[in-house]
């Protein structure tokens, strides 16, 4: 009996109830509105990081491109000294904290049983690239548009959110071997 108990302590804890986690997430978002007057985000931080890197490699290229120069600002401070960049560093830290407390930190590749590691990683890259491109076209991702704009009843965000679900459901059939 003792042995099973010991084994159990090494099992990761189950995930939270989704409604409780949702209330927690909603309160963090509300706090951001109240303290900062803005919502959450994720993809924008990576745009700033890319702009900062390109600005080191080829400042002319960044200045001549309207997309990058918007993240550059007036050029008096680094694009990395940005609200979303610091917020996303916090997201990494918060995920680490929660994962560590629940015993869920484990190196590995997430996939269904019917796909190889290398195809899973290829799909991860392709999916990520589509996400990055789509998020820029839509002016935000699931955090900046769906969550933030959803709570603000933003018209574009609601249209965006419905299209995210529509796109994912429509394409899910072709990806079933990767996940199920």
């Amino acid at each position: 009996m003792n042995q099973t108990e010991n084994e159990n302590t090494f099992q990761p804890k189950p995930y939270s109830n989704p409604y409780l986690a949702g209330i927690g997430l909603g309160l963090v978002l509300l706090l951001s509105f109240v303290i900062m007057g803005r919502g959450l985000g994720a993809s924008g931080a990576f745009s700033s990081a890319i702009t900062a890197a390109l600005d080191k490699l080829s400042p002319e290229h960044v200045k001549s491109n309207e997309f990058y120069s918007e993240y550059l600002g007036d050029g008096t401070k680094s694009p990395l000294k940005d609200w979303l960049v610091f917020e996303v560093i916090g997201v990494f830290a918060g995920g680490l904290l929660s994962g560590a407390l629940a015993g869920r930190i484990k190196k590995g590749i997430e996939k269904g049983p019917r796909v190889s590691n290398s195809s899973r990683l290829l799909f991860a890259f392709i999916g990520g690239a589509l996400m990055g491109f789509g998020a820029k076209l839509a002016r935000g991702c699931t955090s900046g548009q769906a969550l933030t704009g959803g709570a603000l009843l933003n018209v574009g965000s609601w249209a965006f959110m419905m299209c995210v679900f529509a796109g994912a459901y429509a394409f899910a059939y072709f990806m079933r071997r990767q996940w199920q």
Partner: peptide
């Protein structure tokens, strides 16, 4: 935004994450 949403949705089911959730997944290995 409609087109961006559709691309993002397809990317979600191919890649398995969205930008924010992928940060948390990186943190947990």
């Amino acid at each position: 935004q409609i087109l961006g949403g559709l691309i993002l949705g397809i990317g979600f089911v191919i890649g398995g994450y969205c930008p924010g959730t992928s940060c948390v997944a990186v943190s947990t290995g």
